[in-house]
Design a protein around this nucleic acid. Structure first.
Length: 545
RNA sequence: GAGCCGGUAGCUCAGUUGGCAGAGCAUCUGACUUUUAAUCAGAGGGUCGCGGGUUCGAGUCCCGCCCGGCUCACCA
């Protein structure tokens, strides 16, 4: 193995020192186990029964029936508890989250295996050959007839009763979290089932799964700052994708009428309980459909994923219960009126079509919420920069107002539809109201879970939208959509009417598992590196920051 | 980026007014052939996140830094 020079671990710089007394004791035991004739790191153990299978087959069997048939099994797992009692003893074997007790009796396993038993530590892997029985207290157990040593835990496991509690350790050493906290293990099983359920549903609806570039010469499909990398052979700057959207729609142009992709996107932005720099999106596109079709599909898809992953649609979210099968729909402007907290100043729907009226509503809101950061004012003649704050296009202002007024109220599943065109550069205009587009987002638990729209397929309108983005960039907007000529070319060959949707899988899993932090549903969330290098590695060339 | 909270034995956590560094589990030694958070008797184990300062004396008080959590801001 070789490292690029800049990645070579500096001499001993990040050596974690874990070789303490307990480690040495266990190394010594491993030597003794070898001396007994057991391989220290054997290659395999062919068990006949998973622990789950033992419980499935014999969970109902009586002591008498088992004493008669003595069903033979080969089982394996990791030692979670050891209770020694002189010339016999018990231990608990855990495999795939399931536990089975093993009874080890000196005269049943022989002297050599009993010596091995005495050298075992919590965390060791063990194979057991024996038969199923029930103990005096009725617990289903394996009566061991021989033991096979499988692997040593040289480092001690977390405490058996409380598990691993320290949040930082749970993220950095997820394997320990998974071993000692059943809830954590369950979260990732739910996560897998959610993804599986979404795949199954989309496959059934004749979508095909595709893979599009993660490294893109131009980052598009969303408004976010990208990670930058470089391809040496082509001497080419590449960006980790912030969304697969524009590639998936090229496939729609190519006649793959229903496509989806489940994979990581990367956004070079802040971390929070709802944001990780890399996260998982499901995006799907359906030709000859519009956003109404996707609203209906979404309201079927989410409950289906819930039933498949947690067996129902009701989830506990903090103090409240959420039913993922019960949906409400509001247009964005309607939602502002509905959730406006004060009767006397409640705005009217039509106010948001006129920047002067909207300005009055925003002003009122900002007066009502002096502590909060103010919602930006829409551009009205002559106020382009009033009082230091920069005025923004009407649509941006309306969106900001929606977020300030409504977002925290959107706990139960809610579809918010019809977004301002200024903030939706890839969505199709409403036929009767060109300042708004056929776009919706779904909010659950106060979080934006998904975003969907009727796709803009007019290449000339698309070019105008990109140009609007370029102007926003001129004004200093950091996160704008670049002009993607190749995408406009693809649209120019003709894209059928199409609707597309992106679902944030991580946030969906948060809801389904009651997790309040996105880090609890990502196996290895981004953290600052642990071992702070004593001496900074020799840093010749300037770093690219 | 700001505020608040946290970092003490392998793990979970106490630590009083500044006065010898503690418990449970785990580990080690011994006893124990149906226990199950096994039990009983004994023992070992600490860079109190890191670096300064105040003090006769600092886990504790002060300053700086590192790592993490939460809230807010930024961002969408």
């Amino acid at each position: 193995m070789s490292y690029p020079a800049e990645c070579t671990p500096a001499d001993g710089a990040s050596t974690l020192s874990f070789e303490n007394e307990l480690y040495e004791q266990r190394r010594e035991k491993l030597k003794q186990i070898e001396a007994l004739g057991y391989a220290a790191y054997p290659n395999s153990f062919a068990f006949t029964h998973s622990v789950a299978k033992i419980h499935a087959e014999h969970g109902e069997s009586t002591s008498e029936a088992l004493a008669e048939s003595k069903p033979p099994v080969l089982a394996s797992g990791r030692l979670q508890a050891i209770r020694r009692q002189g010339k016999a003893g018990f231990c608990d074997l855990v495999q795939a989250g399931q536990r089975i007790q093993v009874y080890v009796r000196k005269e049943a396993v022989g002297d050599n295996a009993f010596e091995l038993y005495k050298l075992l530590d919590l965390g060791d892997s063990l194979g057991v050959t024996g038969y199923i029985f029930r103990t005096r207290t009725g617990e289903l157990s394996i009566h061991a007839e021989s033991l096979t040593f499988l692997a040593k835990a040289l480092l001690p496991m977390p405490e058996k009763w409380h598990g691993l509690q320290e949040v930082e350790a749970r993220y950095r050493q997820r394997y320990l979290d998974l071993l000692s906290n059943a809830e954590s293990r369950n979260i990732f099983i739910v996560r897998s089932r959610v993804i599986q359920a979404l795949r199954t549903a989309l496959d059934r609806e004749d979508f095909i799964e595709v893979e599009t570039p993660m490294m893109q010469p131009m980052p598009g499909g969303a408004l976010a700052r990208p990670f930058v990398t470089h391809h040496n052979a082509l001497d080419l700057t590449l960006y980790l994708r912030i969304a697969p959207e524009l590639y998936l729609k090229r496939l729609i142009v190519g006649g793959l009428d229903r496509v989806y992709e489940i994979s990581r996107v990367f956004r070079n932005e802040g971390l929070s309980t709802r944001h990780n720099p890399e996260y998982t999106m499901l995006e799907f596109y359906q030709a000859y459909a519009d956003y109404r079709d996707l609203m209906n599909l979404t309201e079927r898809l989410i409950p289906e994923a819930a039933r498949a992953s947690i067996g129902g649609t009701i989830v506990q979210w903090g103090e409240t219960q959420i039913d993922l099968a019960k949906w409400t729909r509001y247009s964005l402007r309607e939602a502002i009126c509905v959730f406006w907290p004060e009767e006397s100043s409640r705005p009217k729907f039509a106010d948001f079509n006129d920047p002067r009226h909207t300005a009055l509503v925003v002003e009122r809101w900002n007066q009502m919420n002096p502590g909060a950061s103010p919602v930006s004012m829409p551009i009205v003649e002559g106020n382009a920069s009033l009082g230091g704050a920069v005025a923004v296009p009407l649509g941006n202002s309306v969106l900001h107002l929606f977020e300030a007024v409504c977002e925290k109220h959107l706990t139960q599943p809610t579809i918010i539809y019809d977004f301002p065109v200024e903030v939706s550069p890839l969505a199709k205009n409403k036929p009767d109201e060109p300042a708004y587009v056929e776009r919706f987002e779904a909010y659950i638990g106060g979080m934006e879970i998904l975003n969907a729209y009727s796709e803009l397929n007019d290449p000339e309108e698309q070019r105008k939208r990109f140009q609007m983005q370029a102007e926003a960039k001129e004004r200093g907007d950091q996160e704008t959509h670049p002009i993607d000529e190749d995408y406009i070319r693809a649209l120019s060959y003709g894209m059928p009417p199409t609707a597309g949707e992106g679902i944030g899988i991580d946030r969906l899993v948060m809801l389904l598992t009651g997790s309040r932090s996105i880090r609890d549903v990502i196996l290895f969330p981004l953290l600052r590196p642990e071992a702070a290098p004593e001496a900074a590695p020799e840093d010749g060339a300037g770093s690219g920051e």
